[in-house]
Amino acid sequence: MPADRSLKFERSNHALTFVRQFDATADQVYRAHTDANLIRKWLLGPPGWSMPECTHENRIGGKYRYVWAHSDEQGFGIGGTILDLKPGTRIVHTELFDGVDMGGETIVTTHFDEDGGVTTMRMCVIYDNPDVIEAALATGMTDGMQMSYENLDRLVAN
């Protein structure tokens, strides 16, 4: 079976999960996530964007920092600490956007699971506060909106 290259997206109270398959071994997908030279190749944005900083200390307790820049736009950055590494299997890291981000620091766990040359990656973003996830998703429209996930699901489905 070839890899399903569509991006699946699941949501629960405290977490967002992305699921994606790749036509590669778990070791290769893992390396593409932990080697700064490889990371830069695919994390770079649309044409016009550059990454003046792309560092990734590939060890537990190591830091990483990605910064995007554009000649006409304000740049932005993400950084954090690597909490756990299991080569070819799992990466756990903290993630914090620069500036006044509403989401605060999140914990991201990425699992790689290989089956017959296809690797399924599950990237789970966990928020401390369940309100945050709604704010992050719904661009903060929590006050008075009474918007439920069901409403949102219905809208997304339409």
């Binding site: 944005g45 649309p46 964007w49 995007w68 554009h70 736009e73 304000q74 932005f76 956007f97 620069d98 500036g99 006044v100 981000d101 509403m102 704010a135 992050a136 719904a138 661009t139 903060g140 429209m141 006050d143 008075g144 909106m145």
Partner: peptide
């Protein structure tokens, strides 16, 4: 869109405008 949503201040502005 990438530029608009990438920035936390812009996300906060959208949040404010939602009200």
């Amino acid at each position: 869109t990438f530029a608009a949503l990438a920035d936390p201040t812009r996300r906060a502005i959208l949040a404010r405008l939602a009200t």
